[in-house]
Simulated scan of single mutants.
Amino acid sequence: MIRTLRWTALALLFCILAACGGGGNPGTNKPPVASFTANPTVQAGIPLAFDGSASSDPDGEPLSFSWEFGDGVRGGAAKIAHIFTEAGTFKVRLTVGDGRGGTNSTEKTVTVTPGPAPSKTVSALALVTDPSGNALSGVSVSAAGGGNATTDASGRASVPGVGMGVPVTLKFSKTGFADQFKVLELPAAAESGYLEARLMPRESAQTLADAAKGGSLTGKQGAKITLPANALVDSGGKLVSGAVQVSLSPVDVGASPEAFPGRFAGVGPTGEQGIIPALRATEGWPRRGYR
């Protein structure tokens, strides 16, 4: 009798576990659904807001967001704004991840119309140095919508095709240094232009053991980055796994504002423009399938 009751109890427990899903597989993870809204047209130089907050996950998991704007720039928030510097047609992709390996992407096409035409173009002389003031040679300087040049031994480069009467963004790049951006707006009556830029050396790369698992890295001056699991995607929107090299390069904005890796002007998630109130900043530069 006791043995019969024991088997009956075990059978009942098995039925309860099966009905509740206990003791079995937790079920297949359902992928999230990516969705976003944005105006289909915008003028070059004007912020365009993107809203991916309508994206969802059937399992209720929190989502990560990865944007590709089609012009080489990426972003990572539910709501974000972007400025297209040149006219053209761009395919914008949003990829969302649920942290459990599930991802989903959606795309929209944005048509960027030309901004105000410059009254004419001239050459601008750029002087590029390191934080100590030493001239930097071999720096690539390119003007949006214009020409490009490379600095010589004196750190100087003459950049052709810089428009006058309109803001022009110039990018400064050199291997081993953080990219720098400057906005030059020359008066319509100017005959030439001049600007200075200071590039900050990148710190040595550290290794994040597995991007799929996430983790934290700490650099100099208290710089720290924490990546959740499955936070990185490659240029095709696929999750990055395995070791990733990350350089954390801090800069004291108050002590060396010219070396700030970017512009002090910022764009908010809904497109509002303003000044970034920060005394310190860090450039995080991951490598291996992410850019």
Results as ranks from 00 to 15, higher is better:
residue 26 P to F: 15
residue 27 G to T: 08
residue 27 G to H: 12
residue 27 G to L: 13
residue 27 G to V: 07
residue 28 T to P: 03
residue 30 K to A: 14
residue 31 P to K: 06
residue 33 V to K: 06
residue 33 V to D: 02
residue 34 A to C: 08
residue 34 A to P: 00
residue 35 S to F: 08
residue 35 S to C: 06
residue 36 F to A: 00
residue 36 F to R: 01
residue 37 T to R: 07
residue 39 N to R: 08
residue 40 P to C: 07
residue 41 T to K: 04
residue 43 Q to S: 08
residue 43 Q to F: 03
residue 45 G to I: 13
residue 45 G to H: 06
residue 47 P to R: 06
residue 47 P to F: 14
residue 50 F to V: 06
residue 50 F to D: 04
residue 51 D to P: 00
residue 51 D to R: 01
residue 52 G to C: 08
residue 52 G to V: 05
residue 54 A to Y: 10
residue 56 S to L: 14
residue 56 S to T: 15
residue 57 D to W: 09
residue 57 D to V: 13
residue 57 D to Q: 12
residue 58 P to T: 06
residue 58 P to I: 11
residue 58 P to Q: 07
residue 59 D to N: 11
residue 59 D to S: 09
residue 59 D to H: 11
residue 60 G to W: 10
residue 60 G to V: 12
residue 63 L to S: 09
residue 64 S to A: 11
residue 65 F to A: 05
residue 65 F to R: 05
residue 65 F to M: 04
residue 67 W to M: 05
residue 69 F to A: 07
residue 70 G to V: 11
residue 70 G to C: 11
residue 71 D to M: 06
residue 72 G to S: 07
residue 72 G to N: 12
residue 73 V to W: 09
residue 73 V to N: 12
residue 74 R to W: 15
residue 77 A to T: 04
residue 78 A to N: 13
residue 78 A to I: 14
residue 79 K to Q: 15
residue 79 K to R: 15
residue 79 K to F: 07
residue 80 I to Y: 02
residue 80 I to R: 01
residue 81 A to C: 11
residue 81 A to Q: 11
residue 83 I to W: 09
residue 85 T to Q: 14
residue 85 T to L: 15
residue 85 T to V: 10
residue 87 A to T: 05
residue 87 A to P: 03
residue 88 G to Q: 07
residue 89 T to P: 00
residue 90 F to T: 00
residue 92 V to P: 00
residue 92 V to W: 03
residue 94 L to C: 00
residue 96 V to Y: 01
residue 97 G to P: 01
residue 97 G to L: 11
residue 99 G to W: 00
residue 99 G to V: 03
residue 99 G to A: 08
residue 101 G to M: 08
residue 101 G to V: 03
residue 102 G to M: 01
residue 104 N to M: 04
residue 106 T to N: 06
residue 108 K to T: 08
residue 109 T to Q: 09
residue 109 T to D: 09
residue 109 T to E: 11
residue 110 V to M: 06
residue 111 T to K: 11
residue 111 T to V: 14
residue 112 V to A: 02
residue 112 V to Y: 06
residue 113 T to V: 03
residue 115 G to P: 01
residue 120 K to L: 10
residue 121 T to R: 02
residue 123 S to H: 00
residue 124 A to K: 01
residue 125 L to S: 04
residue 125 L to A: 08
residue 126 A to I: 09
residue 126 A to H: 05
residue 126 A to W: 05
residue 127 L to G: 03
residue 133 G to Q: 09
residue 133 G to M: 12
residue 133 G to K: 07
residue 134 N to Q: 12
residue 139 V to H: 02
residue 140 S to E: 10
residue 140 S to D: 07
residue 141 V to K: 00
residue 141 V to M: 02
